[in-house]
Design a protein around this nucleic acid. Structure first.
Lengths: 118, 118
DNA sequence: CTGATATTTCAACGATACTCGAATTATCGG
DNA sequence: CCGATAATTCGAGTATCGTTGAAATATCAG
């Protein structure tokens, strides 16, 4: 990850609302969440949600796909991996490069839902 | 690390100049660098440097100590460790908590200088 | 104390970020 | 096509950030 990308990604996460959105997406996994659901959970206007979630999208931290009328956003774990890697390699001293964090969800949502109801 | 602290730390690093300062401090290690040296290396006015380095200090990412007329700033590796830990634990999914990055310099500056000249 | 050095504080300005209601675009069911 | 739903874009107002020169503070050497 380049220096500029890192700054962009850090700025994207450096806001309470956006960090909350991103954590929500991480917890949800690849299945993602629609803009409406996120806005409702956070209790913010739709236009405000768009502003923040697109910030994450532009920074490369969230993917976007359309599902009929809804736009689904999901965390981009590869990008997050890149950011954490950048921080450990460039901002944690030379002795830390041995550590390779694995940024990805433990299991798809469908499996977790099944597990929860079991 | 609390959510608010993480946002503060992320915001502190989310600026080209401050990220450059922090990387400089990380590379330097516990010995730190004086405000004047940092400003000179970056080619920015002293008042601008103060603005940014204090931002890092307030965010807990840099320590400050006085050495006669100079103020020495150094990276706070423990804080950085906390931030990386927060990101891996809260923003990288549940499967990533096994990784514990060790954020600290490989060796004190004095040793490295000796090594370099050898 | 005096002068010199190192850094911070202050004040003012321009630029960017955030918020949110209203208008617009996209999709779907019938 | 039409009405309804989901989301974005637009516009305007407020707030915060970033930059910098000038003035103030702290430390030291003599």
């Amino acid at each position: 990850m380049k220096n500029d990308q890192a700054v962009t990604a850090l700025a994207a996460l450096a806001h309470p609302t956006r960090l909350a959105i991103f954590r929500m997406l991480v917890e949800r996994g690849p299945e993602g969440l629609s803009a409406g659901v996120i806005a409702e959970r956070l209790g913010i206007p739709a236009s405000s949600l768009t502003f923040h979630v697109q910030h994450l999208h532009r920074a490369g931290l969230a993917t976007q796909r359309r599902l009929s009328r809804q736009l689904i956003y999901a965390a981009d774990f590869q990008a997050m991996n890149g950011l954490v890697g950048f921080l450990t390699e460039n901002c944690c001293g030379r002795g830390a490069t041995v550590c390779v964090p694995a940024c990805q969800p433990a299991a798809p949502v469908s499996a977790r839902v099944r597990k929860r109801s079991a």
